[in-house]
Design a protein around this nucleic acid. Structure first.
Lengths: 190, 190
DNA sequence: TCAATTTCTTGAAGTAGTTCAAGTTTTTAA
DNA sequence: TTAAAAACTTGAACTACTTCAAGAAATTGA
């Protein structure tokens, strides 16, 4: 049931069977249809989401009214707005499923008590978030140093299967160019 | 001596006097001259750096040979390459002081034993890195939604004092435009 | 205190991307 | 099984920036 999450956790720390029980008792699986929102701009983000199955994204609507994806999350990834979560401030982001999803939503109060009961989990979340921060830095590096076409090919090489899973216009915005330009890159017209 | 770090830690967790002693025994202050490197591209990053005084930056040299700053760190900020640190892989980044600095460098092995002696510190680093990740997401949002001029004015409004501390060309690259364009924005010639 | 170095400025020419508008293809759902 | 909706494509016109080159100003250090 939650094995994917337990496996992920045990990559970084070792849980006792009793701790697994405690954890298990706190978790529930949500099935969420494609295109549903887990978080809307302006709401305070009160949950962490762990994707068991499917794909979600974090996006904004820019001043021209166009959606721009800032982050994707697939199986075994956490997604949330940590700034809104920690500061209890309205979020600047939407979080939405891109496919039908099975996910674990952990509420702030649940997580806080879990972290007290199983302090080792602090370590797990520390390592995961430090690695995520590192990945965000690499993302900024790629945005800074590569042309649109290079970003497309690079992403395509690194994530060939993933590219098939999401609409091109979402990927275009994630790579910071227009859907039209993506089309031209793919057609070799650039 | 290390009070700035203790104060920062105690914003998030409460340390016993005995824990402060343990921590204190592990720390040393380094004085580092302006423009010295804490990390070079290609090296494995084995340290976390906490800035007590001064300013440092993380940057890359792009394919055209131009430096681009990805991140600044001033007083009470941690700076490192978490990806290199966790994966023991060569870093893609340089970390360099921008001003004469006083900083605390914690080596990986020291930090690991500290985290075992004072498990509460896991929580501190978790919260700090989750917030940093949140800040990185906001940074990407600004890069995506604002024009060069908007990014400059926004940054200037949010950090008027900081803008005085670093050369314009570094700030220009941090905001992802050329030093020449920065000059034109400031002169109102755009 | 002054020479060297670093940083900043300016204008002209070039370009990697966007925007718009319209049409085509693919997917979805009843 | 088909109509509606969503996603993708195309070309033409445009623009927000870059690049280059050269000079001016500010900062640094001996």
């Amino acid at each position: 049931m939650f094995t994917a999450l337990f496996d992920h956790i045990q990559k970084f720390i070792t849980l006792e069977p009793s701790e697994i029980d405690i954890l298990e008792a706190c978790l529930t699986i949500s099935k969420v249809k494609k295109k549903e929102h887990l978080l809307q701009e302006g709401q305070v983000c009160n949950n962490l989401y762990f994707i068991l199955k499917g794909c979600a994204r974090q996006y904004i609507i820019n001043p021209k009214g166009v959606e721009q994806t800032l982050q994707f999350a697939v199986e075994n990834w956490w997604i949330t707005d940590y700034l809104s979560y920690h500061n209890t401030t309205p979020s600047h982001f939407y979080i939405q499923t891109v496919e039908n999803c099975e996910l674990i939503a952990i509420e702030k109060s649940t997580l806080e008590s879990l972290l007290i009961e199983i302090p080792k989990l602090e370590r797990y979340f520390r390592i995961v978030s430090q690695k995520s921060f590192g990945a965000a830095q690499m993302r900024i590096k790629f945005l800074f140093t590569m042309s649109a076409e290079e970003r497309y090919h690079h992403f395509n090489n690194q994530n060939p299967e993933f590219v098939q899973r999401v609409p091109q216009y979402m990927l275009a915005s994630y790579l910071d160019f227009s859907a039209e330009f993506m089309s031209k890159i793919r057609a070799g017209k650039v």
